[in-house]
């Protein structure tokens, strides 16, 4: 009954249904009472939702918007109307929230990303040193147990000469191996990217000015050990597979004692030992030996056979007596 009466009040019944309802209303008081009740309820609904008058010019604005979109061949995203609050999907609150969330995520994730990047660079650096260690050991096997020599005099008297020496022996196939991946600046970075390294003959014959440019570069970002000077004589480094003798390492930024390091975010420097082992060493000392200066504290040739002194590429083997 209610559905029929409702349809009757809303005008949704067809002719025959309407006739049926009217007949019942005329003869059955219950139907009439129910109709009155429904009418009251509908009246309540009407009170709740008053008629709304559209804002002036709505149709015109709508047409302009649609025709502008049609002329542009697409959808006009910005509706033509006084900007309603919360019109767009993104409001200032959403934007601020999204920015805060992004910033929080960035702060949470960035340290981990950065730590991961540093770890990867340390690992790749160690790989370089391992490869160089293999080359150096192979060189010593071919040269009566001696590692590449750093001359004490002449144009080739600088530590970085070890690299072209290895290359000339066919033991250094990739020049990028002499540059730590963590190095983002400095002369040696060009060496890694350019992939060119002068030969020993070229170094011998190039003008002084050009040699001065190559000396800090050719040995890469790693320092190489000097020999030792004792009793007025300089001794080259001989391979005895010592576990505490440093052959190469991340070089300090300067050849001065206590020179600072720019690599691996201050976590230490990678050191290649004579036995082929590579370690990240936090201190400059190893078994009471400062591997970046001799026992007298100078960046010069070692004072005895176990006094390793690792120096940057351009550093010559300065010869100083123990009593200097």
């Amino acid at each position: 009954m209610d559905e029929m009466l409702l349809g009757y009040l809303l005008g949704t019944l067809d002719e025959s249904q309407r006739g049926e309802v009217e007949a019942r209303l005329a003869h059955e008081p219950e139907w009439q009472r129910q109709l009155d009740l429904l009418q009251d309820r509908l009246q309540l609904l009407h009170c709740a939702m008053p008629l709304a008058v559209p804002p002036r010019g709505l149709a015109e604005r709508t047409c302009r918007r649609v025709f502008a979109a049609a002329a542009a061949g697409g959808v006009l995203l910005s509706p033509e109307a006084p900007g309603p609050v919360g019109r767009s999907r993104w409001r200032w609150f959403d934007a601020v929230t999204a920015t805060c969330v992004a910033a929080a995520l960035f702060l949470l994730v960035w340290p981990a990303v950065q730590a991961g990047r540093i770890n990867a660079q340390i690992y790749l650096c160690q790989e370089n040193l391992r490869d160089l260690g293999v080359s150096l050991v192979r060189y010593s096997e071919l040269n009566h147990g001696y590692f590449p020599r750093v001359p004490t005099t002449g144009r080739m008297a600088f530590a970085g000469v070890y690299a072209p020496t290895l290359a000339q022996s066919g033991l250094l196939h990739e020049t990028r191996k002499v540059v730590c991946p963590a190095m983002r600046s400095g002369a040696s970075v060009g060496l890694a990217t350019a992939g060119e390294m002068p030969t020993l003959d070229q170094l011998q014959q190039m003008p002084d000015a050009e040699l001065a440019r190559w000396a800090p570069t050719v040995g890469g970002s790693y320092g190489y050990t000097l020999g030792h000077y004792a009793q007025g004589r300089y001794f080259d480094v001989r391979n005895r597979a010592r576990s505490n003798f440093a052959l190469m390492a991340d070089a300090p930024a300067s050849a001065m004692p206590g020179g600072r390091f720019d690599v691996h975010a201050g976590r230490g420097r990678n050191v290649l030992f004579e036995d082929g082992r590579v370690e990240l060493v936090a201190e400059t000392h190893w078994c009471n030996d400062d591997i970046f200066s001799n026992d007298a504290g100078w960046v010069a040739a070692g004072l005895h056979g176990d006094d390793s002194v690792i120096v940057p590429s351009a550093t010559p083997p300065v010869l100083l007596d123990r009593d200097f």
Partner: peptide, 30 residues
């Protein structure tokens, strides 16, 4: 204009939203 706007105004309860959706409706019709 009046009929659809009234519906949207009643349903959305917000005049500005009703205008926005009214325009969007005819944009889709186009």
């Amino acid at each position: 204009e009046r009929e659809l706007y009234t519906y949207l105004r009643r349903y959305l309860g917000n005049a500005l939203a009703a205008e926005d959706v009214f325009q969007q409706t005819f944009m889709l019709v186009h």
